[in-house]
Design a protein around this nucleic acid. Sequence first.
DNA 1: AACCGTTCCAACCGCATGTGG
DNA 2: GCCACATGCGGTTGGAACGGT
Length: 262
Amino acid sequence: MGRAPCCDKANVKRGPWSPEEDAALRDYVERNGTGGNWIALPQKAGLKRCGKSCRLRWLNYLRPDIKHGGFTEEEDNIIFSLYRNIGSRWSVIASQLPGRTDNDVKNYWNTKLKKKILAATETNTIPLSSNPLAKFQHSSPSPPAPTPPPPLPPFPLIKTEPFSAGDLPPVLFDSAFPYAFEFYPPPPMLQHFPDTILADEAHVVSRGYGLSPLAEDVSAASSSVTMENNGDAAFFPDLGFTSWTDLLGGLSATGPLQSLFS
DNA sequence: AACCGTTCCAACCGCATGTGG
DNA sequence: GCCACATGCGGTTGGAACGGT
């Protein structure tokens, strides 16, 4: 037996919302709030819609703080950096873009930003090594590898215990998202950490959540660097890092990253 | 003007997760 | 711990708008 549907599809309207429906939903929510119960809301608001549909319409379109219109260069950078670091976790990415929804960000990425990044890579505006899409690109004229590498585990893993501001250096802490990443496998820059590594904005999540590994580099890094948990965060004793202070003390930032460290 | 292919985004779907009894 | 239900989330789709021929 399958899961019961969230509503009776025969008796609910589907498809695009009319201005009248929008007005009814907006009026109801502004007067009464959601009441924490979207399932009951459409009936109370006089709408022949599924509660799920109402929720989506409110969150993605009707909310007063929604920002409509094109994405800025800064938003592009944030999406790019976060996608590279955490993948398609659109709700997390959207939470860092005031007024944007996960649906917005997802659509924007799929229809525009992905192509923009691919184009930038092809014109060398973005180094291939920094491109989260590099693995999808052809590397002509060399033929594809005969055996594809095994799938990588998801990364980074996010600790479930929240941090407080004092636990981490400011560059790695944001009160809106008080979690640290436990890198698994370890970020490849910890193998080499050239002085310029952090000058590349793409290597650091814009809001300072963590240092990002590259999928393409991960398997090599994981085989040669060991990692251990030191309290709440992951460090790399083989490389001489035993704390965040050690780790950050060995790194320098230039360009757009200077503001994060100053 | 008509047709066709592409782009874009709102909306849907189903699974995952959270929560209360 | 189990179950039922509500909500959250990411992937996918449908169709309107747009541009080219």
